[in-house]
């Protein structure tokens, strides 16, 4: 299938890209890795008149690491998968490694995935659990929005039509923190039916000082499960604690149904994913090397 006719522009700089977006407003779409935009255009579900190809803007493709982390919006899933992350950032590897297939990971970008705001996207929960925020630029200026506040509904964000995500900022993590992202899916490479990212700060006695719990692929937007987080703080992460946390997550959830999974299945799988993610985070805390993957 072929997209509707459109104009193609390749800006020379980030500034130029922002000018073009300001100029064309809602008629324009930025093109990053094209893994979501192009299929939508081919099905004529997206019909931009102007495509602004930001894909070669080197300034957006860098990772800066000085304690806190700045990931350029064009950094690909594959680049994140390939990097050697310290233990407290293992979530980034977990997330990247379960996105689609090799081809998609080679081209798809973190900024594009966040802007696309697919309810089954993997970066939403992972970055929420790391307290990340996105830097947003436009001809009007710059702003920073926590990933937890980026998504307004399925496929909707707070981004204006003239705005670009320029980078994702991940704050420095506690040196002893560990986390895990578990994606339950029908099969390898498929979209999730329930995904959970946890990031645990450990107290000296091995209990959980605090935990971030983010849930994806179950509701229209990924969300932080604050009741479960409050419950886990200060506890020993045993089976009973995980079970109660899972119950609290389920209570806060209105899952959707699609061909991959019914609402009732998703509700149950959120509990399984949470329990497994907490288990893996604990084992990682104990120094084990464990793949989180598809749980």
């Amino acid at each position: 299938m072929y997209p509707q006719p459109f104009e193609y522009v390749r800006p020379e700089s980030v500034g130029h890209a922002l000018e073009l977006l300001a100029q064309h407003g809602a008629d324009a779409r930025p093109l990053a890795g094209g893994q979501s935009l192009l299929p939508l255009m081919k099905q004529r579900l997206a019909t931009p008149r102007v495509v602004v190809d930001i894909g070669r803007l080197e300034d957006l493709a860098r990772v800066e690491d000085d304690g806190s982390l700045r990931i350029g919006s064009l950094v690909t899933h594959a680049a994140i998968e390939a990097r050697d992350w310290p233990a407290p950032l293992a979530l980034l590897y977990d997330g990247a490694s379960v996105i689609g297939d090799v081809q998609v990971r080679n081209l798809g970008t973190m900024g594009g995935a966040l802007a696309h705001a697919d309810p089954v996207g993997d970066w939403g929960p992972v970055l929420q659990a790391l307290d990340a925020s996105v830097r947003i630029g436009s001809a009007r200026g710059e702003r920073e929005v926590p990933v937890a506040e980026l998504f307004t509904d399925a496929f909707s964000t707070v981004l204006g039509p003239d705005e670009l995500i320029t980078a994702i900022d991940v704050p420095a993590q506690d040196a002893a923190a560990t986390g895990a992202y578990v994606k339950l899916a029908r099969r390898v490479g498929d979209a999730g039916v329930a995904t959970v990212a946890v990031q645990v700060r450990w107290a000296g006695d091995g209990t959980c000082a605090s935990a971030a719990v983010a849930v994806g692929a179950a509701a229209s937007v990924p969300f932080r499960a604050s009741e479960a987080e409050a419950f886990l703080a200060g506890r020993t992460l045993d089976e009973a604690a995980a079970g109660e946390a899972a119950r609290l997550v389920q209570a806060a959830l209105t899952p959707f149904s699609d061909v991959r999974g019914s609402a009732e299945y998703r509700r149950d799988m959120v509990a399984v994913a949470l329990t497994r993610a907490l288990g893996i985070a604990s084992r990682r805390h104990a120094g084990e090397r464990v793949e989180a993957g598809y749980g």
């Binding site: 297939d101 029908r186 099969r187 390898v188 490479g189 498929d190 979209a191 061909v259 991959r260």
Partner: peptide, 8 residues
Amino acid sequence: LRDYGKST
């Protein structure tokens, strides 16, 4: 094919 669920 992805929705259809073919094994890879």
